[in-house]
Amino acid sequence: MVGLGNSRRGMKSPPLLIAALVACMIILGFKYWIASSHNVDLQSRIMELERKVRRAAAERGAVELKKNEFQGELEKQREQIDKIQSLHGFQMENVHKVHQDEKGT
């Protein structure tokens, strides 16, 4: 039984070791709190950036639609210009022929 008493006395932790462990726990807790708050800040920034990306994608889609509409209108106007130019060329040929016929007669 004397051996049991000695082993209990040897199990006692020195106060310096307990103080060091408590200090480590405090430091780790503080670092965890800092990392956690930093993580929350980063997550909020990510959510904000994702929101901006979605908004930009929607705006880009709207711009693409407008661009396609304008390209369609531009193509129609080019076709009209080509028709008008060909009609004008045809009329100029007729005027030129009439003018030559009048000179000939």
Rank of each mutant, 00 (worst) to 15 (best):
Q77A: 11
E79D: 12
E64A: 10
P14E: 10
L42F: 02
E48A: 15
E75Q: 09
L42N: 05
H99F: 06
K52I: 08
L74Y: 02
A62K: 09
L65E: 15
G104F: 04
V98W: 03
W33S: 13
K66C: 02
K66V: 00
T105A: 11
R51E: 13
L4I: 10
L16T: 03
V53T: 04
G72A: 10
K76P: 00
H38E: 13
K67G: 08
R60T: 15
A35R: 13
L21S: 11
E69H: 11
Q77V: 00
M1H: 09
A20D: 05
S86H: 10
I18C: 10
Q43G: 00
G104L: 12
L21H: 06
I84V: 12
R60A: 15
L42E: 09
Q85Y: 02
M1G: 11
V95K: 06
N39K: 09
L42K: 07
F90E: 15
K52D: 13
L17M: 07
V63L: 08
Q77P: 00
S44H: 13
R78D: 02
L21T: 07
L42A: 08
V98S: 12
A23W: 01
A57W: 01
H99W: 05
L17E: 10
S37N: 15
E64W: 01
Q80R: 08
I34D: 14
E75M: 03
D82I: 04
M1F: 07
G3M: 03
S86L: 14
A62H: 08
V95H: 04
P14R: 06
E50Q: 13
F90Y: 10
V98E: 12
E102I: 11
R9F: 00
I84N: 01
I46V: 11
G5F: 02
V40I: 15
E79L: 04
E64R: 06
Y32T: 14
G104K: 05
R78Q: 09
L21P: 01
Y32L: 11
L21G: 01
Q85C: 04
A20V: 08
P15R: 01
L21E: 13
I46E: 02
M47L: 13
E102G: 02
E73D: 12
L49G: 01
R54W: 14
E59S: 11
V63N: 09
G5H: 04
Y32M: 12
I18R: 06
K66W: 00
G10H: 12
D101V: 08
E73Y: 03
Q85S: 09
Q71C: 06
V95L: 14
Q43M: 00
E102M: 10
R9Q: 09
P15A: 03
L74G: 01
M1S: 14
V95W: 02
A57D: 15
S7D: 15
F90L: 10
H38T: 12
L42Q: 13
V2D: 09
I18S: 08
I46S: 00
R8F: 04
P14L: 07
E79P: 02
K67W: 04
E73T: 04
K103M: 06
G5Y: 03
M92Q: 14
M25R: 01
L4S: 12
G89S: 13
K103S: 05
Q80V: 01
Q71W: 00
M11T: 04
T105P: 01
R78L: 09
L16S: 03
G29T: 06
V95S: 07
E64L: 05
G89W: 02
F30H: 05
P14N: 12
G5V: 03
M47N: 10
I27E: 05
L21V: 15
L65V: 14
V2R: 06
G5T: 07
M92T: 08
